[in-house]
Amino acid sequence: MMMSGKTRVAGVMGWPVTHSRSPRLHGWWLEEHGIDGAYIPLPVRPEDFATAVRALPMLGFAGANVTVPHKEAALRACDDVSDLAERIGAVNTLVCRDDGTLYGDNTDGFGFLENLRAGCRGWQADAGPAVVLGAGGAARAVVAALQDAGCPEVRLTNRTRARAEELAASLGGAMTVVDWDARAEALDGAGLLVNTTTLGMEGAPPLEMPLDPLPRGALVTDIVYAPLVTDLLTRAEARGNPVVDGLGMLLHQGRPGFEAWFGVFPEVTDDLRRFVLGEPGA
């Protein structure tokens, strides 16, 4: 990677950060558009995050993505944040302004919706109630995005009900908290099922989710992308439901940040998907 005195630099802050696919993603776009830029992994321990993030403008960075476990801390570290990031309570995209201040945004919800629209042509958020599994940071971004897109009702269920109730209380709107044991019943009449938990992820316990009550036309998506096709998606597809994998959420959420740092709003293509996954021939 050749760098000049005018190279614009961004990166991804996390701990650990070796697993992140963001450097491959942004590296592809930089090469595709012939931009004098670089995107690098920035491993930062939680106890060092506040100091490290404030150093970004001083070091000449254009900005950075923020991944686990720093998204909530990033919200507190910014000089200014978007209304959406404030509402979600987390920042995943930092922009270093010319005056040395830090602006924070959350593009996870944008990535989630764009992934569904690209993966299931004609999908509309107002088509029916959405059932969301989980109540962590990803669930907050997903629920906020669905609400803003016009989803008529969100049925939220989590293994720890108190966390789901806390999320529902903070975001408000047409939300119903459902006991985890009653999660299958919540599928009745739903237009969308979203798994935001780690259940079904490689190395995690399986997701036990009966699908019998789910309408055949309901879209099923899993924000997990390791494995790319989870058991939930396999079972949903087998019964005739449209499905969308979770990789596109990662790819699409990176687009607004890339535009802010490098001046181009990039596209998500099949070749990019293959490259980020490390597939042969990409």
Rank of each mutant, 00 (worst) to 15 (best):
K71Y: 04
A64K: 06
L94A: 03
W180C: 09
T93R: 02
G173D: 13
G27Y: 06
G89W: 07
T7W: 08
F262G: 00
D105P: 10
L207Y: 06
P23C: 06
P242D: 09
A184W: 06
G27Q: 10
L247K: 12
F275H: 15
Q124F: 00
D212L: 10
V132A: 02
C120W: 08
D188W: 02
A77I: 10
D80N: 02
T230Y: 05
N195M: 13
Y103L: 05
A144M: 02
D271I: 04
K6H: 14
A174D: 11
R216V: 07
A125C: 14
V44L: 05
G173L: 08
V194T: 13
G248R: 01
A55L: 14
V91L: 08
T196K: 01
A162Y: 08
E114Y: 03
E165Y: 12
D105K: 05
G34P: 02
N92D: 09
A184Q: 11
A169L: 13
V132M: 02
E259C: 00
T230S: 14
L211M: 07
D179R: 15
A184F: 08
A226E: 08
P242M: 08
A38T: 12
V268C: 01
D126G: 15
L187T: 10
G122A: 13
T67C: 04
G150Q: 03
S20V: 08
M58I: 00
K71P: 12
T234G: 13
P152Q: 07
R8A: 12
A127P: 01
W28K: 04
A138R: 07
A141K: 00
L247E: 12
G217M: 06
A144F: 03
I40G: 11
A127Q: 15
G150V: 04
G254C: 00
L219S: 13
G27V: 11
T18E: 15
T198Q: 07
